[in-house]
Structures are given as C-alpha cells and as structure tokens.
Design a protein around this nucleic acid. Structure first.
Length: 1163
RNA sequence: GGGCUUGUAGCUCAGGUGGUUAGAGCGCUACACUGAUAAUGUAGAGGUCCGUGGUUCGAGUCCACGCAGGCCCA
C-alpha cells in the first residue's frame, strides 16, 4: 500500500503524531538549517510575560507570527525566531504583593527589597511550562531553547548602554511631571492607589470665577473695537483658587462658541466686558437681566446693590479667534522667565461647567502642563536655596515666601490642625485669595461648590497635583524624524499606521521613563547632592568607577569617617562581581556609591525605568549588543516583520520605533533607523457574543482544551479565515467545528478517495514520466489552470500579509473546484477499467497525477496556516516515493512540507479561456439541474438536448469547448446553440428582454436617465431586433440614439421549452422523453439498483457477477434488453438473463412503478 | 472628552474607482443521490445594508451629523 487510508481520525491526533515526528527529527531546527546561506528574513518576537497562563488570544497572535515565518521559509529565506520573556513591570509586582498579602508600604519594612525582588523573579517565570506547552501544541515554531529574558544582567547591561548613548546626546534628562501627591504623607501616589475605593470624596470647595484683563494687541483689537472699551476680561472658573498665583495661560476650545458680553462687576459694580462660552452664559448671568442691546437704558439705570445686573451680548465668535490674545497676570507675585499669559487652544476644554475657559497652571495640572508645554508657555517657578527651580507651593503644601501675601500658608485647609481650624478668626487660604480678588475687581463670582476630589488613602487628606521629579527621554527632539520614518513602514491595517500611530507621533511628548518601583531595570544614573551626574554604560564601567570611588573615599577617610560603610559596601559588590554573582537589580545596584570629580558622593537615582523600554530595546538587548554578537545584530536589524495586538501601538510598536529612530538618528545612519519594515497589528479575541473574555465572567476559552478537542489546525484555520487579523474575532467553538467538517473534512475525503483507488491500482507517482500536458483532458487542464491561478493569488495575499484571503482562496479551491467539480466529474475515471494487467490507461494515469499534484500543492499552500495537517497530508502523498525522490533530486525529496520550496507559477498552464469555459459549464449545469428539479425529471433520465441562446460567437466557443462535460454532468445527449443567425433567432421565436446599461448610459445622458431607462424598457421585439442588426436605435420619445453597448439583451424565453436564466446566461431544456430515452432511463435506474445490491452483498469492487431478472413487465424487459451491453459493462456483469419465473434466491426491489425480482451472484 | 475602528440574512463574513434584482458559508426546510456515504448535490424561505440628513439621473458604496459596540489615550 502506497498511500495510507483513514477511517475516523481526529485532527488532534494527527497533530500529536506530527508533533512527535517533528521532535524526533528536530524539524524546526532543520527548517532553519536548510536555509543556511540564504537571504535572511528577520522576525522579532514581542515578549510575553510568563506570570500568567496563556489564553486563546495568544494562539491567535502567535498563529499570525508563525504563518509569515513559515511562508518566508518556503520562499527560500532563512527565518530565525528567537523567543523572549518580558519579566519586569507592575503586574508582576502586584501579583507578588497580593500573594504575600503586603502593600508597597511594606517593602523595606516587613519585607526587604532583596526578598521582594527574589519573589518577583520566582513568580515571573512560573507559567513558563504552560507557555512552552502551548507553543508546541499549537505548532508555533520559535526558539525556546535560547530566549532572551529581560531580567538578565546582560539584557539590562545593553539597556544601560543605550541609555548612556541617549544621555551623552542630551536626550535623557531630569524634569518633572504632574502627579498626584500627598503633602502630608510626603509621597507621590500611583494611579493604582488613586483608583482604590474611597479615595474620591465629595468636598465643598471655595470656587472663583476669576477675571483676566485682556491686553490690547493686534489679536485682541476686534474685541476692544466691538466693546468700545478697554475693560475686557476673560472669565475662568477654578475649584482650586490656590493655583491662581501659578497661572500662566488660559485654554479655550477652538470650536467652542464664545461671546463678548457687556455687564457689571457684581462686587465693584464697574461696567465691564466679559468673554465666556456662549452655552454657559446662563450659568453666571441671570436671564432676567438680559437685554438685547448695549444701548439699552437698563445699563444706565443699574445701581450698586441691585440684585440683577443687566447684560447684553456684543458679539459671538469661535474659540480659535481668541488664540494668542495676551492678558495681565492675575496675581503678579512671580515673573516667569519666558513670555506667558496668553490664550491657547486645548482639546480638553468643555462647556459642561465653568466658563469654557480653563485657567492653566502648568505646575499643578497634568492637562495644564501638557498644553502649556505644547504651546511654549512657561510655568511659574521660583528657585530654592540650591538654585533649583521649584513650584510656588512647597512639598509640605505651603506657599513659598515669594507669594508674599500668603507665604507659609497651607493651600488646603485640611492640612491645618483641627485646633487651628476651630479658631473663629481662621480663614482658609482659598477664601483669602477670593477676598483679595474681589477687592481688586478681579473676581466675577465666588461660591461654594461640591464636587468629588481625590484623597490620600493613608492620611485621608486631599491630594495635590504636583510636579514630581522624573527622568525623560527627549523624544520630541526627533519627532519629525519619527513621523517621516513611520511613512516607510508597511502597516497592516494601514489605518493603524497613519491614524492611531501617526497621530500619536504627531502629538508626541517626551517619554517619561521613571517608575518608583522595585522590580525592574534600574536607571544607571548616579547623582551628587550638588547635582553632578554620571550615567554609566556598562557593568564594567560601574565596577571601575566603584573601585576608583573606594580609592578616593579611602583617601578622604580621615576627614570623613562616615565613608567607611560605603567603602565596605562597594568592596563587597566588587567582590561579588568578581565571583560572577552580582545582580544588577535593586537593592544591590543602589549600594554602589561613586565619587564625583569634585569629590562629592554620588548615589544612584532611585528610579527604575519604564518596562516598555525593556521590550522596545529587544533588537539590541536580545543579543547583548554591542558587548557581543555584533555581526548577528547587524544581520538582524531591522526586523522584516513583527506582529502584536493593536493595543501595543503605543506600547511595543512605539518603543521599538522610538528607540531605533533615536539611535539611528544619533548615528547618522539613516537607513537603519526603523526597527521594523512590516507590522501586522492584530485585533482582540472576544467571546462569541462579542464580549471581552475574562476569567471573572467565565467566558474565557481554555486554549489547551480547544487544541485537544479540535486540533491545532482547525483552530488556527478558523481563527485566520474567519476574520482578517486586525478585526476583532468573535470566537465561537462551533466555527471550528464548521471548519473541520467543511474544509478539513472535504480535503481528507478527497485524499482518501485518491488513496483508495491509487492503492487498488497499486499506483505511485512517477515523477519523470508524467502524461504530457498536451495529452491531458480538458478537465485536467482546467484544474491545473485553477491550481496555478490559486498559487498566484495565494502568493499575492501572503506577500501582502493577508493570511485571511489566502486561506479563503485555498478553502474555495478545495471545496468548490477540486472536490465538488474535478473529483466529482472524474470519479468514473478512477474506478472504470480497474486494471487486471497492472497497466494503467494513460487517461487514468493523468487523473491520478493531476489529483496528486493538486493535493500536494494544496498541502504546501496551506502549510503556513495549518502546519500539522498539511505536513501529514504531504507525507502521506509523498512518503512512498521519498527515497527515489532523494536519489533523483525531485520536489518530493523533503521529509516535511515545511522544508519544500514554494511551487512556481507555471504560466503556460494558466488557461483563462478554459477557466471561463468551465465557469460557464458550471452555470449551465446548475441551471439544467434546477429545471430538472422543477419538473421532477431525475438526472438518471437522459434527455435529448439543451439549447443555449448565445449573443456572440465567443460565448458559443467557450461553451462548445466544454459541451461534453455538460452532457455527462446533466445527462443530455446534445448541447446546441441559438445565435443571431439561427432560424429561431431571426424568426423571432425567442422572446428577448432588454435592460438599460446604466454604467454606459450615465455619462451620456446624465439627468435624462430616468426617461431613457423607461424608453429602453419599453422597446418592442422589433425595436430590439433593429438594434441588434444595425447596432444603433433611435429612441422615438426622446429622439436620442443608443447603441448595443448601452443595453443588455437577454433571452427571456424560448416558447415550447423549459427555460431558466441567471446572470445573462439562459438555457432551454428539451424535456420530450422518447421511448428510447425512457428505456435508457430505466436501464440507468436498473444499474443503480444492481450496484446497491452488489454493495449490500458485500461484493468487492472488482468482483464480476451474473444477473438473472424476472420478466414481470414488458416495458422493463424491453428497456433492459435494449441496453444490455451498457448494463453489463456498468455493473461488471458477465451475463444478464431474463427468465419467466424466478423462484427463491431473488431479491425484490422497488423501482418507480416496477418491482424488480432479481438474483445476483458472483461469477 | 479625543484618536482610531466596527455596524450588511438567525450566526460568521464577501461586497475595486457610485449603476438600479445586495451575495457566500453555516443553520433551517424540502427534494435528490447512494461505487467519496457518519459524505455529496439541488432548491426554497430568510435583508428598513445601524439611524437621519445631504451630494447625484442613480448611494450598501461618497459627505455631514447622530446611535451602538470595541481598542488606545485623557
């Protein structure tokens, strides 16, 4: 037996079997090895974190990665795939804290940093086994033997080296960001801490609508003109009056409508003109005071003390017209170093509350900081005793001395003690500010307002948004370059690149690298109190500097006995380095004490760096570049291909791009400054109802169970062909079942069919003596042509990184063309003339060769998506000729489909005319089947002919070509045509229908279309004939000529015939059943019953038989006798006898109106 | 609140540059086939193409504004 046959097999067991084979033969390593010396295709693995179990979405993401790596291997590239693990970051810390039942507070107190980090290190690789298991079972080929791990010293050392390069170019700097800060606890709070329940409480704060007096400039001139006054004030509302001394800008929304309003200051009663959002006028001005006109007498009648001030709108305008207007500083305690006090535009402004103008103080609001920075507005800062810039509120929450009126006062009244607040004379600072502004005529409204405000979970006191030190990468310095570089990257889908990613780059801010944590890559910067800094770029440098520090501290020991412990510390670290036991994480790295040029002690900046820097630096760090593997790195940068979830756009995709872009720009090496050339960003995997999967909701799919139930191939195939990778996938297990049945079932059946007969005939592919192409049947040539077209299209789709379309094309080919047409129509070729001599007819050989060729090629095309099944199929098809193939160096010499070379597109085999012909044949057959069914004429009943009206010789030629196929498929004896010259056509027997061709008519007639269409539809048979003959026709009602191309003419009916049409193709069926046809129909039915009998009697396909039939009906007998030879041949009968009476041993079978009494025996 | 994205049959999805009758598979119903048979074929039912306006002779397709879901950011 050359080809294994299978009854019931599970796709999971196929996968198991193939996986075993791969393991035994080191197939993955081999697939890389065989491409040694070939051009390389570089893939970067985005490192997953192994601190949690893998989910079904990981199967999705990794299938995408696997597909293109396998595909490129087939295309002749060497594709190395180094695995990796992401090991740092907050999720790991939180998990450890949860398990230990501790909080960040406990670190350094109830648990040492050392112990804590040890725990993190253990936790982070906990699920590695599960991950490795999944990787294997899903068939993802990646190198897990030698992965990069982000916590390793070598990995971190590369990060340090990169950071130093940035530092040396002044691209790494210390600045600040606005973060939640608790003055009473003296610490910043993480967003996680701020999200704890109970932190937001409703408080009543004093709020102020402050009046910012506009300056007369070119930009504000129109306001002054309209108001005919120089008292123009822009109103801004704040719930934190204490931030007003730090105001340096006002932010408005470009598209928000604003108005200029004339009214009175309610406290000073002075006539003023105010600017605020149109929608919010009613929030601050009483509707009763509204007058239409600024000249209204109400203005003159207003008196101090009146409850309601009159007001009138002077003009309205969009916020964009306010941009650039300057105003006088509200509380001029501290002057900024750069020009400030301007109106700027921001996207966060709303008209839900306030005035539609946001008071902006860059030191005390995150939005404020961002928008000010983007507009070049400075913050209001003072210098402390060391000359360092600090905000006007100190870390205890008190105003600094420069804020003379309020110096030393706490900005939040909750910071005062209860006794102090109990004093009847006590006034909160916000109230004092309000009083001052009222007195100065700069307050439009002061009121208490209740709103939620975050509180420190430890002290229960309000938090401040406060500038805290952070280290930044100056990404803004290379922003334009990053934008440009992005345009050279091929994004799938494109919109993620231009939209989400492109916009992100356009609005880039400096990258905040600092994290106040314990388990992560330490920032390699040491700093003295005086601000001297040193950034180290390697472990070796750190050791050298600490040795030097030991020397210098030792020299200073007499003067500074307190240095002694530092010396010991350094020496102990140096020693552990010498013994290769140094861990560069905290707390060890913190213990290195260096000495600056000026002899000051330098300590490490305590921050860790953002874990995204870890993963974004993987192109370098995975190779410990530049300390090692320089050549490897050069060869594998940039990546040809990466793929991760779309949620990584601002994560990994960005950090890869930013780091590569910055380093490339530094080097002046423009060509190498993108990190990846092609990127597929994948969508989410949702549950079947479109909800997010989560353990909590219990709708998460277990990937292991899915793989073991359905097998990796159907799972992968389903995921890939159901939706394009970047769309969200609604994951439904039923869908995998469907893929199993429909695609894999059909393919397996097709293979089994091939194997069954090939084995019966003891057939084996003969690779050098194939039936020459010219001698193949139409059907063979057609499927070969379809196959080549398929290779062509699948190649295109894979090259375009669209595995979905590739998979769908393969599936359609297998199900619709190969199985449902080629195999179905060719069945007879496989079982007739089962050879006795062992010689195959050429036709049969051609059928085997063609089917074998199709199956083997399909196995290859599908192998990137379904790696197990395809390999199994390939090996089943080729194993019997493996040795010979190796000897003769033919395409079947490879042990695995994954080692093969992509099937070339043999263009000479593509016959588009034939493909068109066959498509027509398929349509004709479909129509005839439909007619037969409609009139209950079974396919076994032969009919005389089918008539096809054709409008041109070309169509006629195409159908004529495949007429024999139509004849046998729908069991008619002839296919005839009606064309323009035939008697029926010219005599007007055909009933024709005409339709306007809008596409052609549109440009000619435009607005007249409706009339033209009506006129065309109204054309008579004579009109149509005239148009057909002369090629033009004058529409009488419109006096407009039309041509044949302006219309579509269809045959609607052939009187006397059964007619069906679809898409311009019409067929007419002659349903007259003559006696002869009737007899043949009966004979065919008879054959069918005998075949059943053979089968029921468990005869072998090759057994010869004898038949005895009782003559119990004249019609039946006549039919059988008339077709005796045909029947005998079909059922392999040596004899067929009719007898008058058959007693005993006869089977009784119903056949329409006949009752067969028949005896069948082996000859 | 902003950016991006999705919305077509019960379900999953196709529908270059606008062309009048919107398709496929699954599921459902019926029939056929019975030498691929726990297969296969054929047919049928099933749609306010998310909504509202607009551009156009003509909109599932283009534009605007909404609604609903999703991701990221604030």
């Amino acid at each position: 037996m050359n080809y294994k046959q299978y009854d019931n097999l599970s796709y999971a067991s196929i996968a198991d079997e193939v996986l075993n084979h791969w393991k035994q033969t080191n197939a993955f390593e081999e697939s890389v090895r065989i491409r040694e010396g070939k051009p390389s295709f570089t893939f970067y693995e985005g490192p997953p974190s192994a601190n949690g179990a893998p989910g079904i979405h990981h199967v999705m993401a990794r299938t995408i990665k696997d597909i293109f790596c396998r595909y490129k291997t087939l295309r002749g590239f060497q594709v190395k795939r180094k695995g990796g693990w992401d090991t740092h970051g907050l999720p790991i810390e939180l998990q450890v804290e949860k398990e230990l039942g501790i909080t960040k507070e406990d670190i350094g107190k109830t648990i040492s940093v050392e112990e804590y980090n040890r725990k993190c290190r253990e936790t982070v690789m906990r699920f590695t086994d599960q991950w490795n298991d999944l990787t294997e079972k899903m068939g993802y080929w990646v190198d897990l033997e030698d992965p990069y791990i982000t916590y390793q010293n070598n990995y971190i050392e590369t990060l340090w080296q990169l950071l130093k390069r940035l530092y040396d170019k002044d691209l790494l700097y210390k600045g600040y960001t606005i973060q939640p800060f608790s003055p009473k606890a003296g610490t910043g709070l993480s967003s996680h801490e701020l999200n704890m329940p109970g932190t937001y409480k409703d408080v009543k704060d004093t709020t102020i609508v402050a009046m910012f007096k506009a300056k007369l400039t070119g930009k504000s001139g129109y306001l002054f003109d309209a108001a005919d006054s120089d008292n123009i004030y822009i109103l801004a509302w704040t719930t934190t009056p204490w931030t007003l001394p730090a105001n340096s800008a006002l932010t408005v929304g470009a598209n928000i409508d604003y108005v200029l309003v004339k009214t009175f200051n309610p406290y000073t009663h002075a006539l003023v003109n105010i600017v605020l959002a149109k929608n919010l006028v009613g929030r601050w001005l009483n509707e009763k005071g509204k007058v239409d006109n600024v000249n209204d007498p109400a203005f003159g009648a207003y008196q101090a003390g009146d409850k309601v001030q009159p007001w009138a709108v002077i003009m309205a305008f969009k916020g964009e017209h306010l941009e650039g207007i300057e105003y006088e500083q509200l509380l001029p305690y501290v002057q900024p170093e750069k020009p400030a006090f301007k109106v700027i535009l921001g996207d966060f402004v709303t008209t839900e509350d306030g005035t539609g103008v946001v008071h902006t103080s860059p030191t005390f609001g995150a939005d404020d900081f961002r928008v000010a920075q983007a507009n070049g507005i400075p913050a209001i800062m003072v210098r402390d005793e060391t000359g360092k810039e600090v905000p006007v509120v100190d870390r205890q929450g008190r105003f600094v001395n420069e804020i003379t009126d309020f110096a030393g006062r706490y900005v939040k009244e909750e910071y005062y003690s209860d006794e102090e607040r109990a004093d009847p004379e006590f006034r909160p600072t916000d109230v004092l500010i309000a009083i001052k502004l009222k007195e100065e005529g700069k307050a439009f409204r002061v009121e208490k307002y209740e709103h939620p405000y975050p509180h420190c979970w430890r002290t229960d006191k309000p938090v401040l948004y406060y500038p805290l030190d952070s280290w930044f990468i100056r990404t803004t310095a290379v922003k334009d370059r990053l934008v440009e570089l992005n345009k050279t990257i091929n994004w799938k889908p494109e919109s993620t690149g231009t939209g989400r990613f492109g916009n992100w780059l356009e609005n880039l801010v400096d990258w905040n690298l600092s994290r106040s944590r314990f388990w992560g890559t330490p920032l390699p910067i040491w700093r003295s109190e005086a601000g001297e800094e040193h950034c180290i770029g390697s472990v070796e440098e750190l050791i050298a500097l600490s040795e030097k520090a030991v020397e210098r501290m030792t020299a200073m020991l007499a003067e500074h006995p307190e240095y002694a412990p530092y010396i010991d510390q350094n020496q102990s670290l140096i020693q552990s380095f010498a013994q290769s036991q140094l861990d560069v994480h905290r707390p060890y790295v913190d213990r290195f004490v260096l000495v600056s040029e000026s002899g000051k002690l330098m300590f490490r900046e305590p921050d860790l760096i953002d874990v995204w820097f870890d993963s974004g630096a993987m192109p370098y760090a995975q190779w410990h570049y530049p300390f090692e593997n320089k050549e490897t790195f050069d060869k594998s940068f940039p990546a040809d291909f990466i793929s991760e979830g779309v949620d990584q756009t601002r994560g990994w995709f960005f950090t890869l791009h930013a780091i590569a872009g910055m380093l490339g720009t530094l080097d002046g090496n423009v060509d190498s400054s993108i990190a990846f050339k092609n990127v597929v960003s994948t969508g989410l995997v949702l549950d079947k109802n479109g909800n997010k999967m989560s353990k909590r909701l219990g709708n998460a799919i277990d990937p292991f169970r899915t793989l073991s139930t359905y097998g990796a191939d159907p799972t992968r195939w389903y995921m890939i062909t159901n939706a394009e990778p970047w769309e969200n996938l609604k994951f439904n297990l039923d869908g995998i079942g469907e893929v199993q049945r429909k695609f894999f079932g059909t393919l397996l059946n097709t293979y089994n069919f091939f194997a069954l007969y090939a084995n019966l005939d003891n057939y084996r592919i003969e690779q050098f003596d194939r039936v020459p192409y010219e001698r193949l049947t139409e059907l063979d040539r057609w499927i070969i042509s379809k196959l080549m077209t398929l290779v062509n299209e699948v190649t295109e789709q894979f090259e375009d990184y669209n595995p979905t379309k590739a998979g769908r094309l393969i599936q359609d080919f297998v199900c619709d063309q190969l199985s449902n047409w080629y195999v179905r129509l060719s069945r007879r070729r496989f079982w007739t003339g089962a050879s006795e001599t062992g010689e195959l007819t050429e036709d049969k050989r051609a059928a085997y060769e063609t089917l074998q060729h199709c199956l083997a090629t399909v196995a290859q095309l599908m192998s990137p998506i379904a790696p197990f099944f395809s390999d199994w199929l390939y090996r089943n098809l080729t194993e019997s000729v493996r040795e010979e193939s190796i000897e003769k160096d033919t395409p079947f010499k490879y042990d695995s489909v994954h080692f093969t070379e992509w099937h070339p597109v043999v263009t000479e085999w593509i016959d588009t005319e034939l493909e068109k012909s066959m498509a027509l044949a398929q349509n004709v057959c479909s129509l005839v089947h439909s007619l037969r069914k409609g009139h209950k004429i079974k396919v076994r009943q032969p009919l005389t002919k089918v008539l096809i009206p054709v409008l041109n010789a070309e169509t006629r030629g195409l159908i004529e070509h495949v007429a024999p196929i139509i004849q046998s498929e729908v069991n008619v004896r002839a296919v005839e045509f009606l064309d323009g010259t035939s008697a029926e056509a010219t005599s007007g027997i055909l009933k024709k229908k005409i339709k306007p061709n809008f596409k052609a008519l549109g440009p000619k007639f435009g607005k007249q279309m409706k009339d033209v269409a009506a006129a065309i539809t109204a054309m008579t048979a004579d009109d149509i004939a005239q148009l057909e003959q002369s090629g033009t026709f004058l529409l009488p009602s419109l006096n407009q000529p039309i041509t044949l191309a302006d219309t579509e003419i269809l045959t609607e009916d052939v009187p006397g015939w059964l007619v069906a049409s679809e898409g311009g193709l019409t067929v007419a069926l002659d349903v007259t059943i003559t006696d002869e046809l009737r007899q043949e129909g009966i004979a065919r039915d008879f054959v069918n019953r005998i075949q059943n009998l053979r089968k029921d009697s468990d005869f072998d396909v090759t057994d010869k038989i004898t038949i005895v039939l009782e003559r119990n009906n004249d019609t039946l007998a006549a039919a059988v006798e008339a077709n005796k030879a045909y029947i005998c041949q079909e059922v392999q009968a040596n004899s067929l006898e009719l007898v008058e009476n058959l007693n005993g041993g006869a089977s009784e079978i119903e056949m329409d109106e006949f009752l067969l009494r028949v005896a069948v025996a082996k000859a």
